[in-house]
């Protein structure tokens, strides 16, 4: 014993730490990664590794040489951003494009706000939307699953959501359905789409893991998916010829990935349970509005970014349930 340590209470600390949480998220993403590699093979491996490495590298370079602070590139958050960015790109995206996306994600999405904890928008989504707006053609040519050894030369096509969007203008839903993989195939991820968003079941396994490890709570994913289910369900009941059924909406596109991983990002989601409900319902409603009435076939990314912007407001006005009602202090 040299000198006694003195500090205010509490004197013990839980095992939780930021790197532990971050690596927990990464572990939960592994099943989805495995499924994506199964369907997209070499392309998935290339874009994922490029994305992760460039995110970590850009974080390091910006912190070291521009902000001149101690780099925190290994705390796992840049790794997750890279992984999620790769997950929402088509598996045949050129390497240079992935790197631009990573630069936008880390540079614009995260570092301009002051780094981890201060960003308003989900960095991976910022990167994804940046690419989507800059290179719309490359970002909407989705490779067919099952071409393991093909990367840039993969055969591409439209996602189920895009087929539906195109189709309902002139035909009924039941006429379009045969062109879309069956629900079991959608559930297993055998469809065209962003590399990581396809496999609903793998993402659900990841969610269960995160719930078990108490990394996230169930409120945000359930409120988003539930809202989409209800909203599209009502539309479907009104006119099943014009509107696809709710199950289709939940299983297709980036809804699962968005609801489970993008929207639950700690930094950019509300702090209180009631705030989480507002946020989740908002994302669900805007997603459906964009998908059905908007110009794009998919709207989860935009919906999450829009609601991200409301999070500071939600945090300001939605307070947790205080213990006991207030009385006047004598």
């Amino acid at each position: 014993m040299d000198k006694l340590v003195v500090s205010p209470s509490p004197h013990i600390h839980s095992e939780a730490s930021v790197p532990r949480l971050m690596y927990g998220v990464i572990i939960s993403l592994l099943p989805a990664l495995a499924v994506s590699i199964f369907y997209f093979g070499i392309g998935m491996i290339i874009i994922t590794s490029v994305s992760i490495i460039s995110c970590i590298l850009f974080e390091y370079l910006i912190q070291k040489f521009i902000l001149k602070v101690r780099p925190t590139h290994l705390d796992g958050s840049a790794f997750i951003t890279g992984l999620l960015l790769a997950f929402c790109l088509p598996a045949n995206t050129p390497i240079w494009m992935v790197m631009i996306g990573a630069l936008a994600a880390i540079g614009i999405g995260k570092m301009t706000f002051g780094g981890l904890g201060n960003n308003i928008f989900n960095p991976a989504l910022v990167g994804r939307v940046f690419l989507f707006v800059s290179f719309p053609v490359a970002m909407t040519s989705w490779p067919e699953p099952g071409q393991w050894m093909k990367y840039a030369d993969a055969v591409t096509g439209a996602t189920p959501l895009a087929i539906m969007k195109e189709g309902v203008a002139s035909r009924t839903v039941s006429e379009i359905m045969p062109e879309i993989p069956g629900y079991l195939q959608l559930f297993l991820g055998n469809m065209k789409g962003s590399s990581g968003e396809i496999a609903a079941f793998a993402l659900l396994i990841g969610m269960l893991y995160m719930l078990y490890r108490k990394i996230i709570t169930w409120h945000i994913p359930v409120s988003i998916i539930g809202t989409v289910f209800l909203f599209t369900g009502i539309l479907w009941l009104i006119n099943p010829d014009k509107f696809a059924d709710p199950l289709f909406h939940i299983l297709s596109g980036g809804l699962m990935l968005g609801a489970i991983y993008m929207a639950t990002d700690y930094v950019t989601s509300p702090m209180t349970v009631r705030g989480m409900w507002i946020y989740g319902v908002g994302i669900g409603v805007i997603t459906v509005l964009i998908r059905i009435f908007g110009a794009y076939p998919e709207g989860v990314q935009f919906a999450i970014l829009i609601l991200n912007a409301f999070v500071p407001l939600i945090n300001k006005y939605v307070k947790p349930k205080r213990f006991g009602k207030e009385v006047k202090n004598g």
């Binding site: 939780a16 930021v18 958050s77 981890l116 201060n118 700690y266 930094v267 702090m271």
Partner: peptide, 9 residues
């Protein structure tokens, strides 16, 4: 830095 995980809440 605070990552706004809301565990404290």
């Amino acid at each position: 830095p605070c990552i706004r995980c809301s565990k404290c809440i």
